Amino acid sequence: MADQRPLAVVTGASTGIGFELARLCAENGFDLVVAADEPKIADAASTFRQLGADVTAVEADLSTTEGVDKLYAAVADRKVDALLANAGRGLGKGFLDQDLERALKVVDTNVTGTISLIHKIGNDMRRRGEGKILITGSIAGFIPGSFQAVYNGTKAFLDNFAFGLRDELKDTGVTVSCLMPGPTDTQFFERADMMDTSIGQARKDDPAKVAKDGFDAMMSGEGDLVSGWKNKLQATLADITPPGLLAGQHRGMAEPGSGTS
């Protein structure tokens, strides 16, 4: 009887960094449970199956309790070897100009749904004494996000949460890694209504390269990985720059109209 392939759960896997993370898992011998809140997840699953993986695709809104429960039910009684908690959304414009329901959905997707899923699968891992968790944070978590304040706030939470959870689990056999990319060439800025901003129009990192950095960090048990040397420099400078100055710098990147001449 052939050895059973390990299982990875990847959220936000229909496009972008999540798609590339799932692809790497499939290429490296994992079967998959992949989730996203759009029908494209079925197309992504077909791609992963062509790489030899057994794939369960789940269309679910992970900003809701029902969506998290639907994904966890799809795992059933299978042992999850790796959880790649990547699902996230952003929203541009000033906070008081945003639709509050959309802003709260950013919080519920990036924070509430993420930690709810980690709580369920993380407990299963801890009981077994093994498992790998990768959380997609962001260098945005180091920067007060003028005109992206809710999103940056959620990423600050995730970056901090990942370090705290890693320490709590250090003697359990479960590792926690945090991938902290910078602006990446995905549909994020279009979906966040930020294409009229400087950051929306700027050159961005390759999602395949970002995902490879995160996957390698997870597999080696590394605690955190800022992807890209420019982002590493920005993260380092953020530690020594006054928050007010950082917020002003972020305004220049994210204020609506900053990308127009």
Rank of each mutant, 00 (worst) to 15 (best):
M219P: 04
L100M: 12
K132L: 14
K230M: 01
G200R: 14
L91I: 07
K232Y: 03
A87I: 03
K230C: 01
N160F: 10
H119L: 07
N110Q: 12
P256R: 11
T186I: 01
M219Y: 09
E255W: 03
G92C: 11
F189Q: 05
A22V: 01
L117W: 09
L96E: 04
F163A: 08
G200W: 15
F95A: 09
L158A: 04
T64P: 05
L62V: 02
L24N: 05
A36E: 09
A45L: 00
A53G: 02
T154G: 11
V210I: 13
S220F: 11
G153S: 14
I118R: 07
F19C: 00
A217T: 15
A2N: 08
L91F: 05
V58G: 04
M125H: 13
Q98F: 02
V111G: 03
T64A: 01
L83P: 12
A82Y: 14
V9Q: 11
R127V: 14
V10W: 08
I115K: 11
N160Y: 04
H119S: 12
V106T: 06
R128L: 15
A74S: 09
L246E: 10
D196M: 15
K209E: 13
F30E: 07
I143E: 01
D206F: 09
Q187E: 07
Q148W: 03
D31E: 10
